[in-house]
Design a binder for these strands. Structure first.
Lengths: 243, 243
DNA sequence: GCGGCGCATTGACGATTGTCAAATTTTATC
DNA sequence: GATAAAATTTGACAATCGTCAATGCGCCGC
């Protein structure tokens, strides 16, 4: 499925609109120039791989547009979607810092624009501006916090509650409210990926979806989802607080 | 339950045997002196809190001896044991870096010796030596990697396999081999904590333990565990590879 | 347009799990 | 050491979940 990515040169970090929202915002002007010299922009089609588990990273990837899935595969070939990355996110810096191979793969979930920054440039910037390392540290700590939150959810919520929570999170980014007060969105991922995100089989997700539809809470058609009353999904997360 | 911790002054980071195994190993000699001036050693009894969720950290904690449980509580009061920390580990630096309250609590699981390093000193050291920030970054990235591995396990393994895996990990640190080739250990945590670590109810863990005993795989008595053939536990992790 | 192929849905069924409850053991406190 | 509190174990039962299997749907390449 993956086609070759397209390398473009009509772009520059100096003028990148996402830079102020990324880790690179701590750089000074001359450091941004250095960043721009080590940078190459790539366009990816849906399904294309940005990097793969097991490879050693030769640079970091800075997202300008699109959605990228961060996955990990276990020994039996099960794919688990761990994280969705968005414009402003920097990907793959762990491997550059440690020299270890990537522990996850990154795959475009739609047309995406991602800049590659050469490892040498990254190291020069880390040397030149200690704030960049601290910024990466803050970002990584936030990711760790998010991962731990997921662990808590996996340990305490039912699959149904986890799916409801995931739908709310996705609705927050992909959803829009219609005139009748309902919320709709186009799912960025397949049912299988939804299942791996909540730690269940895809058949189980299908059944939960069926029940949600029967109960009038959410309606699915392909990848489009309609939630008439968003509060009904919120109810699913809170365990029964008998009153 | 928690008694007050004991503040001791008969100790110095300069001579600390764990320093070479901790993040502070990147410091130069004069920086270690600065570290030692900002440091206070505390002794904690089993069950005592080192810091709590919601508090803003006024420094970082460096473990010299013992075992510390990193927990998170959800809105309903469920406690999830996310991580066990050991000598050489540095705890609570996220809060110091971000100014945000601690997202987890840290509790001694037995007699523990933990040094507190004042936030001001930490910031001075981060300013003085950029390698310290990069070291924290590597450490945090490793923690993130471990958390993601747990997420994959939660998504793909049965509770029984997760418990077997956890026992193997604990055996690696707490176990010793007896003359007859069996492995034994003293569990550092309660059944409830074991359950929260694998994302199951404590009743479920009790039942899995009963089955493991009936099948001759592992024998539990209080907190002591005896595993006659460690390979039998390993078999539990690998899904059925029909041959 | 057609055939394939992967994804999605649904049914059936057994296994596992969560919940509630009670009995028992261990641990903590005085 | 006695009592209280907490942790653990076990049973019963309903609900959920995973697996296997069959079918339908949609997309893509030819």
């Amino acid at each position: 499925m993956p086609k070759t990515s397209h390398k473009g040169s009509d772009f520059d970090c100096v003028t990148c609109i996402m830079r102020k929202h990324s880790d690179w915002r701590v750089l000074a002007t001359d450091e941004v120039d250095l960043l721009a010299r080590g940078q190459t922009r790539y366009s990816y089609q849906s399904g294309e791989s940005i990097y793969s588990m097991g490879q050693v990273g030769n640079g970091v990837h800075c997202m300008c547009a699109g959605t990228v899935a961060i996955r990990r595969l276990d020994a039996e070939g099960n794919s688990v979607l761990l994280h969705l990355a968005y414009p402003g996110d920097t990907l793959g810096y762990e491997s550059v810092l440690t020299g270890e191979p990537h522990r996850c793969s990154a795959e475009a979930l739609g047309p995406a624009k991602v800049c590659h920054i050469d490892a040498r440039t990254v190291k020069q910037l880390l040397d030149a501006n200690p704030n960049l390392g601290l910024q990466f540290l803050r970002r990584t700590a936030a990711s760790l916090d998010a991962a731990q939150d997921k662990l808590v959810h996996h340990a305490t919520l039912s699959n149904r509650a986890k799916l409801a929570h995931l739908l709310l999170v996705l609705m927050d980014r992909y959803g829009r409210e219609t005139v009748d007060g309902a919320n709709t969105m186009h799912l960025p991922v397949s049912r299988r990926d939804l299942a791996s995100m909540i730690g269940a089989r895809h058949e189980t997700v299908s059944r939960i979806i069926s029940r949600l539809e029967n109960e009038g809470i959410a309606f699915f058609s392909g990848r489009s989802v309609r939630v008439p009353h968003i509060d009904a999904l919120l109810e699913e997360i809170r365990p029964q607080l008998v009153g």
